[in-house]
Nucleic acid binder design. Structure first.
Lengths: 193, 193
DNA sequence: TGATTTTCTTAACTGAGGTCAATGAAATTA
DNA sequence: TAATTTCATTGACCTCAGTTAAGAAAATCA
């Protein structure tokens, strides 16, 4: 199991000594997903976080038969139904692999149990939660104050590879518009550059 | 100082014995605000939570000379620049009284210091943070998946008194539209009922 | 209260995204 | 590889919010 990158990721938040690795290994497991496979289904409790070693995933929910993609997760990011875990309620969102994926999976309950032994992990948990809050906050402001076109350019700027790796209509869902509108925005963009 | 309602509010989250009141009193203070007065300015660190005994407030930010109202807080709610406190960064948002207000103010640092002595308060802090996260999450989904008109009716349903207490253009900011558009939505609403 | 400023409404126009339908391109599968 | 399905693009048309400007209503203040 290739845990190098997870450790590196966690170390961005908190210092982690080598010895701590040993206490972490038992709560980690590796998971392989096929393209389009649902990793976490709707209606199920969110119990784990998946660090993406390879591949790309999306978090989405379904309302009135229509899907809304909320977030894309790619290499070196954690994908999770965190809201469900926090609420202790079955998740309204699902997580799907959009490419063949390789995940390092961490059980959230196991992580919480480790908090007493390894304070550094406790801190990581809190910082991660806060980071999520901030991310959601920024995103909300973007949706409130920006046009779909502005959001398109922002996404193009921050995650340019998304456009070649993910189907257009998932991106359209993410931007809050119809695939046809995304096509038109792209066309306008081509013409002006 | 009238702290009855704050205590009642906190008790909705966690059981609080009478004796705990004594430890809380020193970190509480009462603040009166005039109409339109800015309680927490932009660019300042978020350091406190204000429980509203009377009045109504708004949380907003300014971008490119334009204001965006993110939330209204009325009686029996806490108003705070919580994101700033969590980020430990000067706030991008400001909080303004939209009516003469009476607040019970709690210093967040003081509250954190109390956590060691009163575990029930620690729990309150966490639950409050989680509640904020959930609220923000729900709101984001509403903005992504609903039209301004749907959001208008939702607000009308959940906080009908807002419309008589708050200026239309603040509500328009909150809904993510122009005051003119809100007028038109209201007109449509009148005609159809 | 009366005067002045601020806010709200209305109208005409523009533009961007939604909808529907058809076609072309790409990915899947046999 | 060919056949089939899925996805992306385009066009025509429609709807609704943005913009600008004007006037009405309401709130503020002297």
């Amino acid at each position: 199991m290739n845990v190098e990158k997870v450790v590196h990721f966690v170390r961005q938040f908190v210092p982690l000594e080598e010895s701590i690795l040993e206490s972490m290994l038992p709560i980690l497991s590796q998971v392989e997903l096929k393209k389009n496979e649902i990793w976490q289904a709707e209606g199920v409790m969110g119990t784990s976080m998946g660090f993406i070693n390879k591949g790309i995933m999306r978090l989405y929910f379904t309302d009135d038969g229509e899907e809304f993609t909320q977030e894309f997760y790619a290499e070196n990011e954690f994908a999770s139904n965190f809201i469900s875990y926090v609420k202790k309620q079955p998740s309204k969102t699902a997580i799907q692999a959009l490419e063949p994926c390789e995940l390092i999976v961490m059980q959230l309950d196991d992580l919480q149990n480790l908090y007493d032994e390894v304070p550094a992990l406790d801190r990581f948990g809190r910082l991660y939660a806060e980071q999520m809050l901030i991310g959601m906050y920024d995103k909300m402001n973007a949706i409130l104050g920006e046009t779909p076109e502005q959001r398109y350019y922002k996404l193009l700027d921050s995650k340019p590879d998304i456009f070649s790796r993910v189907k257009q209509y998932y991106i359209a869902q993410y931007l809050g518009i119809r695939p046809e509108s995304l096509s038109r925005i792209r066309k306008r963009h081509m013409e002006s550059s």
